[in-house]
Amino acid sequence: MRAALRSAAMQLKNTLARQVIQFIILIQPIVFATLSYFILRHRPGVDMASYIVIGSGLISLWSAALFSSAGDLDRERRMGNFEYLLVTPTPFETIILGKIVGNTLLGFGSMAMSYLYATLVLRADFAVRAPMLFVLGFVGTLVSFLGISLVLASAFTLSRSARLIVNGMEYPIYLVSGVMFPLTLLPQWAQVIGHLVPLTWARATLQAAAAGLPASFWPAFWGLLGTGALYYLVGRVMFDGVLRRLRVRGDAGVY
């Protein structure tokens, strides 16, 4: 636990110094909040503020998870640290979990940025009607993102092209998670895929809390935790397999 917390603290310091992460946390929420505002402002009867703040914040949270999961491992490999991390007394998975916690906490900065920009600049009327549920939704989102980030980190551990692959993983997830329009616009099969993505449940959870709708909040919250737990289990199994494979092939440091 201590090692994971130390890893998270170190990750926060290192990542904050990276300009691409500064971009994701500070600029990307502004970009997507502006796009959401100008695209959705004609739509009658839609809670635009909720889409602007929650949608654009979650978009940046997902980008932060993707790019830092891929970039961290890529950087460790390039700098020759990767093999050392694999053989330190602290399990590699603990170090990675710490990094993921750090990244996700940073990602929440994007949500704060979305809120500030939407309310101060775009004058969006965003109110949280159930603050306690909103905080609970945040915690659930953090927990759920640990699971999916573990899966991503395991997959990226094997790939030397992770940085490039993630470029194609942003919009497909935005599309099926309903961050800018309801899922009902998608075909049934795409909606099913959407429900396998924690971002979908995080969006539904936070929107329900903001609207003060406990009846909608709880199913979404359990869905959020459920998908998070599922991905965590998959990530654990994947990690064991990936580490075994790296040791057998002996190419952990090949860049």
Partner: peptide, 10 residues
Amino acid sequence: FFTLAGRFSH
């Protein structure tokens, strides 16, 4: 993604 957002926006 953006075409569907546009369709939703009317």
